[in-house]
Design a protein around this nucleic acid. Sequence first.
DNA 1: TTGCTCCTCACGTCACGTGAGGTGGC
DNA 2: TTGCTCCTCACGTCACGTGAGGTGGC
Lengths: 348, 348
Amino acid sequence: MTTQPLLTIGGFARAVGLPTSALRHYDEVGLLSPAETDPATGYRYYTPDLEHRARLVALMRDVGVSIETMRIVLDGDPEEALAVLREVAADRAEHAQRTREVIDTVLALADRARSLEVARLRVGAREMGAALRQVRPAADRDPASALAAVALDAGAGTLDVVATNRYWMACRSMPVGTDPSGPARAVLRLAEADRLADRLDGLDEVVLVVTSEGRLSVEVDDDLIGVETSDRPFPAHRLVLEGVPDPTTRLLVERDAIERALTEAARSVVTLALADERLHVEGRAVDALVRGKPGTIAMRTALLLRALAACVGGRVLLEVAGAADAVRVSSPDQPGFVALVMPTHDEQ
Amino acid sequence: MTTQPLLTIGGFARAVGLPTSALRHYDEVGLLSPAETDPATGYRYYTPDLEHRARLVALMRDVGVSIETMRIVLDGDPEEALAVLREVAADRAEHAQRTREVIDTVLALADRARSLEVARLRVGAREMGAALRQVRPAADRDPASALAAVALDAGAGTLDVVATNRYWMACRSMPVGTDPSGPARAVLRLAEADRLADRLDGLDEVVLVVTSEGRLSVEVDDDLIGVETSDRPFPAHRLVLEGVPDPTTRLLVERDAIERALTEAARSVVTLALADERLHVEGRAVDALVRGKPGTIAMRTALLLRALAACVGGRVLLEVAGAADAVRVSSPDQPGFVALVMPTHDEQ
DNA sequence: TTGCTCCTCACGTCACGTGAGGTGGC
DNA sequence: TTGCTCCTCACGTCACGTGAGGTGGC
């Protein structure tokens, strides 16, 4: 047994990164006591082998672990120590999550008290969640982009849920009961759109309320879900949709068939030839119904595949105007959805 | 101006979900005062239009927002209100994250004090991070699976980083300075492996310490990073690797070429034919160097593509034994990495 | 001898919760 | 008249932080 050097409270405090006031407190409650205390002067003397315990205490104190929990961790059953610490971490994570939700709700409520409601739309929760998930793939994947977002846009009797990355756009229109009293739009960043879609799961009907300040809240029975909205610019999707000329050629095809043809072409850019009432993908014939003027159009394979994947139903309708105009992709099985895919001129 | 019904403190408390003790406190500090107070009896009377404010207070109180912050939110500048609330949410999220990290470190330190160190391995942080990311795609994607994990396994002079989903396995071996004093292995769930990889970014050299209880900690200079380990079973990858018979045929091919051939085959199961010193994928010839016994082997295209994608370098080496034996996939450009891919008998 | 460090109370913090002891309204 | 609700102090909580007033060791 070698005698260890004795440290005064100040030296020990510096060594382990705790204030002396905390060390005195830990001595008083018996969590961390000095190796010896001079009975005459009351001086506390610590030894270096106490530093390990003190450093654990310092770490836990830093994140607000209670003294009773520290006792369990330091002196209790290892199994229980593991359990209580995991519980602390889980509590904190849950608290952070709940704080976020409550704060969004508070902001929505406070905003409402100040600004006008410009739209109040009753929609099915399931359909709303499905729409958010359906258009999501068209959003920009770069989180820094203003287009890493989904827009909710209320027009005459419909609510449009839309996403775009400039190369293609997905838009789902849902009928709603009430007309907005003015132009109403709210833009949600992707992460927030995902959170909203998750919270809509299992609900029945909700009321979306958009205020004049462009903020969104969702009423569920008597409750209110706040949604964080983005102020960054988002294209006027109605103008984009209306800007596409009337189609000169229409093509109705089994989704499986065209997806297979695109995959088998194994090229990053494919040429679709529409002639003699037939579709040819890179020269290979695909069973399809073609009506209108003959023509060819070059598209990025990956874009077209993503747009097709977003469609619901077994058959898809492609509407083509000029070689430089966006192609409308939709499905007769789901009238509310349309994707717009820009053609390309590159030949890879 | 219609007179509103007056509510006593108890009725108001029930209406807004706050205890009367809290309401008295909010009156005292001037955050939420009753509409009138009877000067004779001191009775507090609230009106329904105070409920909106009170409900906001109740929400914020619930997540521990301070009274001073509530004042800003309720009576301050809207911009400032938005800023302080966002700050509260960000603080909570950061605190939750830090709590997690600290608790992992405390558990690692506490564990160390109790159990034996069985391995102490000095490795490059960058190489370790790269290894975790390289084997990751082979892990099971189902978060509930025991194989949604990465194993670190220290053997004679090497550390193996390995992941598998039973259909294929990826293993990267790194040379390490020290030998373990016993069998040393730690299994990390995927999320934890990702977190570790992120924390290794930008570091230089680290020391991995595995204890007899199978826990892992990472020393960085004087600091310690705790890593949460999993107790769920993980296959003995050395036995799996050693169980593959010596190859009868070897195939060296450009990675691009075989990937292209597999994509163009456009089938979910492909047959590789190795004969006459040539490779045929579904009948199409691919430039390659083939040595050994002729044979054919059927594989799931997606699995083989994923294994090829995990390889580093332009050329890949495939080593084939029997038609039912796993195929070893590696690259002469990175000797430390090997993938094992199970063949299939299904013909889709 | 002079700073510096150490000591022990005592009180404050933050947002209430919990009695004690007393009164008002149906 | 009897509960029930309301009132005002006063004190406790949790983990220390902050002086005040005093002493010990180089």
